[in-house]
């Protein structure tokens, strides 16, 4: 069964419709990449999956987003536990004005996941290790998170997301503000994380989509044009529009 199953999703900002009849299945422990030109709705779609759009007062959602067979837009959904289960990494790294340790510990603390102080410490270390950052920061856990480089900050944000034991990780252009080396590290990390997590990633970089994803979805003007295994998508797409976009004829 699919981890995430979206059917006939429509999304509105006030009267403007941003997403039209999106239906897509995302299998467990796979990476699905969302590509498409700017403003095509791929970020908006990503944010419907953990209800981050709830913070926008004029936003309205129709349709179903099933995660593990439960509709996340049901009235009795606990949004906090949904977001704990469906973690998110943002385009611009957004560490808290706290120490490196406290950044990762924050999610564990507010959700009361840890049993005691030692357990908390262990969980923070594990999350940093899983985000391939522990070696670089273990001697300065109590220094400011803002002292890290851009790439390190982004991996810190990934560690922070991993620390609350999510099952799905949403990434909104996680490497778009990073240099090629930092980008490569994030990509290697995504491939590594796939073993444990289901990952949805929005990217502008088609090579990146080709490198890290199992499946690619192409969005255009708020519609899902095509979704197929990445291999097929980049060699022999079903839709002419997809081929035009991938070969750089527009966008």
């Amino acid at each position: 069964m699919s981890k995430i199953s979206v059917s006939d999703l429509n999304f509105f900002y006030g009267k403007a419709q941003a997403l039209h009849d999106i239906s897509i299945d995302i299998p467990e422990r796979e990476v699905v990449a969302f590509i498409g030109p700017s403003g095509c709705g791929k970020s908006t779609f990503l944010r419907t999956l953990n209800r981050m759009n709830d913070t926008i007062p004029i936003a309205r959602v129709e349709g179903k987003v099933m995660i593990d067979g439960k509709d996340v837009y049901e009235p009795n959904t606990d949004v906090a536990s949904l977001r704990r289960k469906v973690g998110m990494v943002f385009q611009k790294s957004n560490p808290f004005p706290k120490s490196i340790f406290e950044n990762v510990a924050y999610g564990i603390r507010i959700n009361g996941i840890h049993k005691n102080r030692a357990d908390l410490y262990e969980r923070v270390e594990k999350a940093l290790n899983d985000a391939a950052l522990l070696g670089e920061v273990k001697d300065r856990m109590n220094t400011s998170a803002f002292g890290l480089s851009g790439g390190q900050q982004q991996r810190l944000c990934i560690a922070r997301a991993l620390a609350v034991q999510p099952e799905v990780i949403l990434m909104d252009e996680p490497a778009s503000a990073l240099d090629p080396i930092a980008t490569q590290k994030i990509e290697e990390l995504i491939v590594e994380l796939k073993k444990q997590y289901t990952i949805a990633i929005v990217t502008h970089n088609m090579q990146q989509a080709a490198r890290v994803s199992d499946r690619t979805a192409f969005f255009m003007l708020g519609k899902l044009v095509e979704v197929n295994p990445t291999q097929k998508m980049f060699t022999n797409p079903d839709e002419k529009l997809t081929e035009d976009y991938i070969t750089g004829r527009f966008g």
Binding site: N50, A80, G87, M88, N94, P95, I110, N111, R160, V164
Partner: peptide
């Protein structure tokens, strides 16, 4: 704020 909200805060 979104960073914290996304952790379930």
């Amino acid at each position: 704020r979104e960073g914290a909200l996304a952790l379930g805060a």
